[in-house]
Design a protein around this nucleic acid. Structure first.
Lengths: 152, 152
DNA sequence: TTCATTTTTGTAATGATTACAGTGATAGTA
DNA sequence: TACTATCACTGTAATCATTACAAAAATGAA
């Protein structure tokens, strides 16, 4: 399995005409293996376990190269820090306001943009939804019951 | 006109049960008057011309209060800095990758979310589009013609 | 080997935002 | 009028993700 991902990463890099250097390979492989929208720091923390001399700048270098080459997408649902996604298929992201987890969704748009953006050349669309995931809805309901009991 | 905006601002604040202090009034009035998605710093720079002792912290304080009360929305289309929008009606934002200008669009969704997000409680939806505005498309076409002439 | 180019590292800078402590204004009360 | 508590505002310092930059290491060709 690990083999497959790193081979895919190497192929992706070669197809874009850049050298599959050790760090680039590791970073891209990590993103393919972990479609959990990690931050640059999370990638750094994980890879540092294998590559003891890894520098954070190298991670940023690799990531910004990948962004330029359209190998990965950045996900800015999280106000503070940028996340990275090796799935470049058009899809939306949902973030739970309570547990902060991010979920993908793929049944996006078919927006009726009509006249409004007719003269604009649209190159990328991002969909960020916020709300409560099923688990946190459940928790909230339980809290309400609890509070209701207390106050009565 | 200026009167109308500041009166509306005062009314909005009172309706939410908070005191329309001088700075809050100025910040909210500015946002109502300037639906151009200004950054905190842009607001600060402008208001500082009238209120010489204004501190940036006060601008941030006012803005985060407004966000909590749902008087304004933050717009994070711009990776680096947060922008603010007093139009809280559901609408999308388009940013031109060339001139960086941000445009509103209102013909949003009627997404077919179907099963996928059925169990999620969606509280907010953000639509960020990126591309080229009509003017910058024009410029790009002209550049291409120019380059074509040069190389031939 | 030698040299040039590319990759990687480490440290310092940047810049938006937040924390915090202190100062000032305001309003209600005795 | 003075007192007090609360709230608004300011200024400075801290935080933290990201970028700049220069130097060191690796690579690859001649």
């Amino acid at each position: 399995m690990a083999l497959i991902y790193s081979e895919k990463a190497a192929k992706m890099l070669l197809e874009k005409g850049i050298k599959p250097s050790p760090i680039r390979l590791k970073v891209l492989t990590f993103l393919l293996k972990n479609p959990t929208h990690p931050t640059a720091d999370e990638i750094y923390q994980e890879l540092q376990k294998e590559i003891l001399t890894l520098s954070k700048t190298s991670v940023y270098n690799a990531l910004s190269l990948f962004l330029r080459l359209n190998l990965v997408k950045s996900v800015n649902i999280d106000e503070k820090e940028t996340r990275y996604d090796a799935n470049i298929e058009e899809h939306g992201h949902f973030q739970c306001l309570s547990c902060k987890q991010i979920y993908d969704f793929f049944h996006v748009p078919r927006l009726e943009e009509k006249e409004e953006l007719n003269d604009f050349m649209i190159k990328e669309k991002r969909y960020y939804y916020y709300g409560l995931c099923p688990e946190c809805q459940q928790k909230e309901e339980n809290n309400e019951k609890f509070n209701w009991n207390k106050n009565s």
